[in-house]
């Protein structure tokens, strides 16, 4: 399900970085976290729990671990504690992570 972002990003000037979200190219202001970029791009889930429940970034400060996504191939990365880098590959996660990267489903 595609859900529009629940946030409006102020039109500020400044540098931007390119990344991909589930393979789709996207842009975000430089200096933001992966979690901020995620919720700026979608209002939908960015992680599904082991039981299949939809979740997305919640606390934004490293406490809740609901923002876990795959960043540059590393699963269960805390998106809110990771600065978005130019060229980063970000993937939403479904279910538990696997041993050699990737995840269920």
């Amino acid at each position: 399900m595609n859900v529009a972002s629940r946030f409006r990003t102020l039109p500020e000037t400044g540098e931007s970085v390119q990344f991909t979200l589930d393979g789709v190219p996207a842009t975000a202001p430089a200096g933001v976290t992966v979690a901020a970029a995620l919720v700026a791009h979608t209002g939908a889930w960015t992680r599904q729990t082991a039981q299949g429940a939809p979740r997305t970034a919640y606390c934004m400060m490293g406490v809740c671990f609901d923002c876990l996504v795959e960043v540059d191939g590393t699963p269960n990365t805390q998106a809110c504690m990771t600065l978005l880098g130019d060229g980063m590959t970000v993937r939403r996660q479904t279910g538990l992570r696997n041993l050699n990267g990737g995840h269920d489903g």
Partner: peptide
């Protein structure tokens, strides 16, 4: 736990760090 429910302080962090404003909140 639903996407779309969030602590108010988390939204404030997005305002401070990314200039992102909650819409229809």
């Amino acid at each position: 736990t639903l996407p779309g429910v969030m602590p108010a302080g988390a939204a404030q962090i997005l305002m401070k760090t990314a200039g992102m404003l909650p819409k229809d909140a």
